[in-house]
Simulated scan of single mutants.
Amino acid sequence: METKIGGDRAKEISSRLPFDEAFHTDTIGYAGGLWMLWNSDRVEVSILSSTEQEIHAVVKVLNSNLSWLFTAIYASPRTAERHILWENLNKVAELHNMPWVLAGDFNEPLLNEDKFGGRAVSVNRSLLFKECLDNCGMIDIGFSGPRFTWTNKREVQALIQERIDRFFVNASWCTLYPEARVVHLTRCHSDHCPVMLDMLPTNHMGRKRPFKFQTCWLTDPTFPRIVSHAWRQHNILEGAIETFSKEALVWNKVQFGNIFAKKKKIKARLNGIQKVVGVRPSTFLLELEKELLGELDTILR
């Protein structure tokens, strides 16, 4: 992902995230700053090379023993530097025949339908982009969710929206993961929306969720009593953890359940609005989106 943060600050922030391994690139002025984050108990990642615009790595999935090439992209806003990136990708394509995923912010709409508002898509630039993708054997496997991944967040008369954050895969990767799908998730605080590649989609309906500690519990003054009560009932760690897990879930439903339900409802409404704005933007919908984002900020504080 592009974070606009590099150096020691990048390392400091990523060390607090729920991943035990990370790799960072430098920013390009006030843009760029690619981070690749992973958990070493799930994948083995070998970094091959990197520039300010790309990270190339071999990913080995530990529970399946499958390996493939993953390239994280932040294409420069400057056309000349994007041309360098396309040339680099062409060279990488000549050096391997592995299953391959390209992912990131390409800063270039590929088709006219990938943009709303502003200047028309440059035919020459999009042809160079497409030529690079063809040379790399890349396939667009489509997406679900809102149509565009970036917005300038302006009023409807000046609104620009683009689909520039993407996943591309080659044919041999498709063979490994034939059910894979791309999802444009709800955009909340950024001008970009998160984009997820779901490699093994499954139906989670009816499946019991594992226990998960919620950081927001620490902000509630009644939470220490839940911990103390669990420890007082047991002399061994295993029993205390089991009691704490059960009691914390009940307490969470009473104290925070309404908050989580509100958050889920607001994000669902935002996703629906962003889908419609991608097709028929209006002042009413853009104002409603701002209101809901304000409500979401209030809940998350």
Score class of each variant (00 low, 15 high):
99 P>A: 06
100 W>K: 04
101 V>L: 10
103 A>E: 07
104 G>M: 04
104 G>S: 05
104 G>Y: 00
105 D>P: 00
107 N>K: 11
110 L>M: 12
117 G>R: 10
118 G>A: 07
120 A>I: 14
120 A>N: 15
120 A>S: 15
121 V>C: 06
122 S>Y: 02
122 S>F: 00
123 V>H: 06
126 S>W: 05
126 S>L: 04
128 L>D: 13
128 L>A: 13
129 F>D: 00
130 K>H: 13
131 E>W: 03
132 C>A: 15
132 C>N: 05
132 C>S: 12
132 C>M: 15
132 C>P: 13
133 L>Y: 06
133 L>F: 02
134 D>A: 08
134 D>C: 11
134 D>L: 11
137 G>E: 02
138 M>W: 01
138 M>Q: 05
138 M>S: 08
139 I>K: 11
139 I>G: 05
140 D>Q: 09
144 S>Q: 12
144 S>L: 06
145 G>N: 07
145 G>Q: 05
146 P>T: 05
146 P>L: 02
147 R>D: 02
148 F>Q: 01
148 F>E: 01
150 W>V: 03
151 T>M: 02
151 T>Q: 03
152 N>M: 10
152 N>A: 11
152 N>S: 10
153 K>P: 09
153 K>L: 10
153 K>W: 10
154 R>C: 07
157 Q>K: 14
158 A>C: 13
160 I>H: 01
161 Q>G: 05
164 I>E: 00
165 D>G: 04
169 V>K: 02
170 N>L: 00
170 N>I: 09
174 C>T: 10
175 T>H: 14
175 T>A: 13
176 L>M: 14
178 P>K: 09
178 P>C: 08
178 P>N: 05
179 E>D: 14
180 A>Q: 02
181 R>P: 01
182 V>K: 04
182 V>I: 06
185 L>H: 12
185 L>G: 10
186 T>C: 13
187 R>S: 01
188 C>V: 15
188 C>I: 12
189 H>D: 09
189 H>T: 08
189 H>S: 15
190 S>T: 02
190 S>I: 02
191 D>E: 04
191 D>W: 01
191 D>G: 09
192 H>G: 04
192 H>R: 02
193 C>F: 07
194 P>E: 14
195 V>I: 15
195 V>S: 00
195 V>N: 02
197 L>V: 12
198 D>Y: 00
198 D>M: 07
199 M>Y: 06
199 M>F: 10
199 M>Q: 08
200 L>G: 05
200 L>C: 15
202 T>D: 11
202 T>F: 11
203 N>M: 04
204 H>C: 15
207 R>E: 14
207 R>S: 11
208 K>P: 08
209 R>C: 13
210 P>S: 03
213 F>L: 07
214 Q>H: 08
215 T>I: 15
216 C>W: 12
217 W>A: 05
218 L>W: 01
220 D>K: 03
220 D>S: 07
221 P>Q: 10
222 T>N: 12
222 T>R: 09
223 F>M: 09
223 F>T: 06
223 F>C: 07
224 P>F: 00
225 R>D: 12
225 R>T: 11
226 I>G: 04
230 A>T: 10
231 W>D: 03
231 W>T: 06
232 R>D: 09
233 Q>D: 10
235 N>F: 13
237 L>W: 08
238 E>N: 14
239 G>P: 06
241 I>G: 09
242 E>V: 01
242 E>W: 05
243 T>Y: 11
243 T>G: 01
244 F>K: 04
246 K>H: 15
